[in-house]
């Protein structure tokens, strides 16, 4: 019997926790043991989650592959599927398809410095790389993480990042935080305590705080679409070659496997499917594919 790639596999919600006013942490476990074991993913790949009667939407997996075959996601509610996920309690079932997309070239990045730049919800896929690189610390040189938030309330994975702030360089990663609302009290408190690692402004301002060595650094950016232009420019100014700047894109997706065409972008000389050619592209791709960023 031919496999039907569109038929979702059932997964149980083992955790559905509120993180902020908008975002939930979701942990899924595939019901079928064999499916779960075969479910090997690259960091940066995404899955399609189906809710019966509501629809289907793509989400990045936000943790590294683990022994228990659990899939962690961070979901911002507001649309049909995302609001429906919010309603579901632990133990409920959802449909899962995937993993889809290319993911980050972790092997290729070995031996280099990593600079991870996250804006808002973009932190989700980058968290998985952070987890992985900290766990395989010896494979990478310096690891730097820039995280831009609007206010303290909107900060995701707060405990994890606070402990990185508190741990300083001992934590294995240089963590920097920027916040957009200059009057946010909790952020001001953080800044008072970690003045060298926390500042107000947009995430690209954090470049003022640290030196990066362009020759041996991979930069990975994920966030709202306008961020790519600004951060990309900052990095190019610092001579990081565009093919070593990685971005992860969001587009409307219906299939995740290069069929439905909703994610098509580009120009006559370079038409790309975000779902199957991406979602991870290089900044070089972006410079040579119109309409990508």
């Amino acid at each position: 019997m031919m496999e039907n790639v569109f038929l979702p596999k059932l997964a149980k919600i083992v955790k559905n926790e509120k993180m902020t006013a908008m975002e939930h942490f979701l942990r899924l476990q595939l019901l079928d043991k064999k499916t779960a074991e075969e479910f090997q993913y690259n960091l940066g790949q995404f899955i399609e989650i189906s809710i019966m009667g509501v629809g289907e939407a793509p989400f990045s997996i936000c943790s590294m592959q683990n022994q228990k075959y659990l899939l962690d996601l961070c979901i911002r509610s507001g649309g049909r599927v995302t609001s429906a996920i919010l309603r579901l309690g632990e133990g409920s079932l959802v449909g899962v398809r995937g993993p889809y997309g290319n993911g980050f070239p972790l092997k290729e990045m070995e031996g280099s410095n990593l600079l991870l730049v996250a804006g808002g919800l973009g932190v989700a896929p980058l968290r998985s790389i952070l987890q992985y690189s900290l766990k395989n610390r010896a494979k990478y040189r310096d690891i730097t993480f820039f995280y831009g938030i609007r206010t303290y309330d909107t900060m995701l994975f707060r405990d994890e990042f606070n402990s990185l702030l508190a741990g300083g360089d001992e934590s294995g990663c240089k963590f920097y935080l920027s916040y957009e609302d200059p009057k946010d009290e909790q952020c001001l408190l953080l800044e008072a305590e970690y003045s060298d690692r926390c500042m107000s402004g947009v995430v690209s301002k954090l470049f003022e705080r640290t030196e990066i060595s362009p020759k041996d650094t991979y930069a990975i950016i994920c966030g709202p679409s306008i961020m790519y232009k600004f951060v990309g420019q900052e990095l190019t100014k610092r001579d990081v070659p565009p093919e070593r700047i990685l971005i992860s894109l969001e587009r409307r997706m219906r299939c995740g496997i290069g069929k439905c065409g909703n994610c098509i972008i580009g120009d006559g000389s370079s038409i790309r499917y975000v779902c199957k050619d991406g979602p991870v592209f290089t900044y070089w791709d972006a410079l040579h594919t119109k309409g990508m960023i």
């Binding site: 569109f6 019966m52 009667g53 509501v54 629809g55 289907e56 219906r254 299939c255 069929k259 439905c260 065409g261 909703n262 098509i264």
Partner: peptide, 18 residues
């Protein structure tokens, strides 16, 4: 080849089709 997808629920609110 672009297509769109919708879920339709039946009167019982439990079953339906994609």
């Amino acid at each position: 080849r672009c297509y769109d997808v919708v879920d339709n629920v039946n009167m019982d609110l439990k079953s339906g089709e994609r």
